[in-house]
Amino acid sequence: MLSIKGLKANVGDKEILKGLDLEIGRGEVHAIMGPNGSGKSTLAHVLSGREGYTVTGGSVTFEGQDLLDLEPEARAHLGLFLAFQYPVELPGVNNTYFLKAALNAIRKARGEPELDAVSFLRLMKEKLKVLHLDDSLLKRPVNFGFSGGEKKRNEIFQMAILEPKLAILDETDSGLDIDALRIVADGVNALRSPERSVILVTHYQRLLDYIQPDYVHVLAKGQIIRSGGKELALELEDKGYGWLGAEEAA
């Protein structure tokens, strides 16, 4: 589904991603862990097409297409979704209106008919329940004045509505209380299917108790330096990242 080969990317003159390789198969859940500043969010942003990064090498193929060639909206149409580490506030932009525009843009791009207002509302009500979100959030501007946890849940709510093929969750678990963490995990698990894949960027083993990953990767200094099964996460929890760096140097 997603194939990243030797990806190198700069911010300004600074190289952040330094030859990164990653293969994600259909239906798989991959966790990416790694120290602060190692390039996890940068990877997520480069994949979703944010401005400000220069790709200097390597390739990314998603669903058979050269992902790096596409505008951000075209990537979303292909089925890519990023849950932001820091969701952006959009004052004045109504949440419901926004989601409907997003869903219908994606449906249209796929040649599906747009959803009418009634079906859309029904869909929203259903997903709200799954994520235990209050429907007052729908009437408010996107993320505007939302608490940290509400913003994160709103990201997962959007994901639930848009039903992407590949969701990248950038530290969606950070700042969530224990109940919210379980709710978010339920939301992600509800989306899991043999067709859909997930990349979980996280610092904490706890999330992986709820969403069992198939693979765990360690991203450090712009590269994947270690990959393994979910036991790798436990090992990291125990020993930190130091031993990996040491191992690499040796």
Binding site: V88, V93, A102, A105, L162
Partner: peptide, 27 residues
Amino acid sequence: PEQLFYLRSRGISAPLARRMLCLGFAG
């Protein structure tokens, strides 16, 4: 640009995204 990117990452075209942000401003 951050707001624009957020909307586009959800599949909304750049022109519509700009319009939504302007209408949000005017709201």
